[in-house]
Design a protein around this nucleic acid. Structure first.
Lengths: 140, 140
DNA sequence: TTTTATGGTTGATAAAGTCAACAATATGTC
DNA sequence: GACATATTGTTGACTTTATCAACCATAAAA
């Protein structure tokens, strides 16, 4: 039995787009020519040491073709390295370079400034609730 | 002063993509060859009688070029009509056709089935809280 | 009346996304 | 060990979403 119209999808569609485009504009204004997806991947790699492409595919839910291309771009920009995986000859371990880490720190600052514009309208407790409920929906 | 890392952007990015791609797959499996953005626009038009392109641009935050193209598509598919605006010679009033309304009702059912998969993990109260907090962030 | 602003259309292009094909490697079966 | 099947990652090819620019018609301001 489908739920009543909660406005959930509409809300998510709107909020996600607003946050996303605002963040991307802020990153661009900081002088970086990274795609939004490049930034998201940098975040994921930083959050998950010893990851490989397959890890990112699973975590992000994105298509492996897209992930492979983005990784290739980021490696070309010197932001990450890929070393043979010790246990799987088909994979490589992905690591951020010092440059990659530095850039990510700067990008994070820009993104957090944008985030705070949205979150300023909520109490700390409300923010925590929103994130917790969202994560609950994402849990397997 | 930027907020601490709340995980907000990450969550939003993940959740929005998951919901979006699931919904789009469900709509496609219902036999419709509509883009995701077509569907979103149909929702917006249905929700706002007497709207025009500019209305949709403002409500959605999308670029007017994109909105114009999507409207053109939907009109070509017989899902909406555009009549001269009584007060503004540059605009047209957008109205869903009977076919458009019918299609939207069907699409809504498919989307709500998907929605309920995500929302089933929350109580009704939690759903309402999530949506309320989200809307609070979007308020001007 | 003239100038400036706005709404909508189209051109052109970029970013995000998806499915397919294939080579290399891993795993399972006998 | 040999062979069949599955998985991982790369690239080709294409679609969908998104953005900026240019322009015309109309509206609003000066």
């Amino acid at each position: 039995m489908p739920v009543e119209n909660t406005g959930f999808s509409d809300l998510l569609w709107q909020l996600a787009f607003q946050v996303r485009s605002r963040c991307q504009r802020a990153v661009a204004e900081s002088g970086f020519t990274l795609y939004g997806m490049h930034v998201r991947l940098l975040h994921l790699i930083a959050a998950e040491p010893f990851c490989r492409a397959q890890t990112l595919v699973e975590t992000s839910g994105r298509d492996k073709a897209q992930i492979a291309r983005l990784l290739k771009d980021l490696q070309a920009q010197g932001l990450l390295t890929r070393a043979p995986h010790p246990e799987d000859g088909r994979s490589r371990v992905i690591t951020l370079t010092a440059e990659g880490n530095e850039l990510l720190a700067t990008v994070r600052a820009a993104e957090q400034a944008v985030e705070s514009e949205f979150l300023a309208k909520l109490s700390e407790r409300e923010v925590e609730t929103f994130v917790r409920l969202g994560r609950k929906m994402l849990a397997p």
